[in-house]
């Protein structure tokens, strides 16, 4: 077994996932005025308080992921381009992809999407919540409302796909976020450049 994720990385991931779940459930409840979901949260007034503070937790957790993933995600090369062109090897049973780094090209792209939309949803959420006392506040609330909902739509597509690819689609992956370790033979097949660099 080789170590692929630290204990803090695992903990932070589940804090992010947990807060995302709370935010999405309450988000849908606000979007469609879902009274049943509202009553689970103890009413819409309380749900708003929970939504806002879960947003704070989400934002801090997202910020901390930068230290785990951003440097790797920004290292884009020809192997990554080739991975993308080949659809990551997911579109056919026969395609093979070039050797990948600690995160494959798809994971890098996914992280960038989550980081950007996460920052957008957090910043816009903050404007709606705090409502700064400026002259054209209504314009900024409208821009924030739009940005908040565009980011929401992006994330509710990206995260289910992430959950599928991290479990059913790639056996041996989910254990990274439970035990933090993977067999070195598994890592050699999926993240060959990382194995080489680490000298496992």
């Amino acid at each position: 077994m080789v170590k692929k994720a630290s204990a803090f990385e695992i903990f932070n991931h589940w804090v992010l996932a947990g807060s995302f779940f709370v935010l999405t459930a309450s988000g849908y409840a606000f979007l469609f005025q879902l009274e049943q979901v509202g009553s689970v949260f103890g009413g819409f007034n309380q749900m708003k308080v929970i939504h806002n503070w879960a947003g704070v937790v989400f934002s801090v957790s997202l910020f901390l992921t930068i230290f785990h993933y951003l440097p790797v995600a920004l290292r884009f090369g020809s192997d990554d381009i080739s991975w993308i062109i080949k659809g990551g090897g997911y579109l056919s049973k026969k395609v093979t992809v070039p050797p990948q780094d600690e995160l494959n090209a798809g994971q890098k792209l996914y992280y960038i999407v989550v980081l950007v939309s996460g920052i957008a949803i957090a910043a816009s959420g903050l404007v709606i919540w705090l409502r700064p006392d400026i002259a054209d506040v209504r314009k900024w609330v409208l821009i924030s409302h739009l940005l908040h909902n565009v980011s929401f739509d992006l994330m509710v597509v990206a995260i289910p796909v992430h959950m599928y690819l991290a479990t059913l689609a790639n056996p041996g992956t989910f254990r990274i976020m439970v035990y933090g370790t993977v067999p070195v033979s598994w890592a050699r097949k999926r993240h060959a450049k990382w194995v080489q660099r680490m000298g496992f």
């Binding site: 849908y28 997911y90 929401f152 509710v156 796909v161 599928y164 056996p171």
Partner: peptide, 29 residues
């Protein structure tokens, strides 16, 4: 646009994942 997309989007992502699992399946080693 954005409101319907919230349901269509998540539904589509789940449906596409299930479809992929059935049609192509997991990456085995």
């Amino acid at each position: 646009v954005l409101k319907p997309l919230a349901y269509i989007g998540v539904g589509g992502a789940v449906a596409a994942s299930l479809l992929h699992y059935v049609a192509i399946g997991p990456k085995k080693d």
